[in-house]
């Protein structure tokens, strides 16, 4: 309908504009379900909580759990790991954040982070690197005992998932 010069019709004719506009709305409306179907479906959205029993995790041990298809690191930190993390001045950090902000008050030895490097999504290796934390084998990022990035290229600290202590030895993630 682009070329309507023939037979003396007027391009600005209201009828043509109205028809074209309604048609455009219709096409947009038809596209929406095809885009909308891409989003996580109801069964995926429902699988959003995972319960973790902390009691079998030894001091100094990092255990990996699965939540929403992603690895979750649960680190039962030794006192020295906590001290080390809290002794670092914030201005030395790439993404400044205190250790206290990254753990639940009263449960300071438990660090719970999403085990995905904030650079390009690899899973970092525990107890490696120079900062008593994690080392990412893909591009060499290093994280400390609070899961904070200390050596790039990763721009951000390991993310903390939403979680709660339901008892002293049990957390619910999500």
């Amino acid at each position: 309908m682009a070329h309507t010069e023939t037979s003396g019709t007027n391009r600005r004719d209201f009828l043509y504009i109205a028809t074209g506009a309604v048609g455009a709305v219709g096409v947009a409306g038809m596209i929406w379900p095809f885009v909308s179907q891409l989003q996580p479906d109801a069964s995926v959205l429902a699988l959003s909580t995972t319960e973790v029993d902390l009691s079998p995790i030894q001091e100094g041990q990092i255990v990996t759990f699965m939540w929403r298809g992603k690895p979750i690191f649960v680190f039962n930190r030794l006192a020295k790991d906590v001290e080390l993390a809290r002794a670092v001045p914030l201005n030395q950090l790439i993404d400044p954040q205190t250790d206290q902000d990254r753990v639940k008050a009263g449960h300071d030895k438990w660090l719970v982070v999403i085990g995905i490097c904030t650079h390009l999504g690899c899973v970092p290796l525990g107890h490696q690197g120079n900062y008593d934390g994690w080392f990412c084998p893909c591009h060499g990022s290093q994280y400390d005992s609070s899961g904070r990035v200390r050596v790039g290229p990763a721009p951000l600290n390991l993310a903390v998932p939403p979680y709660n202590f339901v008892s002293d030895s049990k957390i619910v993630i999500g």
């Binding site: 309507t4 037979s7 009828l15």
Partner: peptide, 24 residues
Amino acid sequence: QVMIFLFVFAGLLYFTKKKVWKDV
């Protein structure tokens, strides 16, 4: 909603078609 929309659109197209063809 879809039926109402298509009715309106079909109506507009009908008159557009009539207008385009009016001299033929």
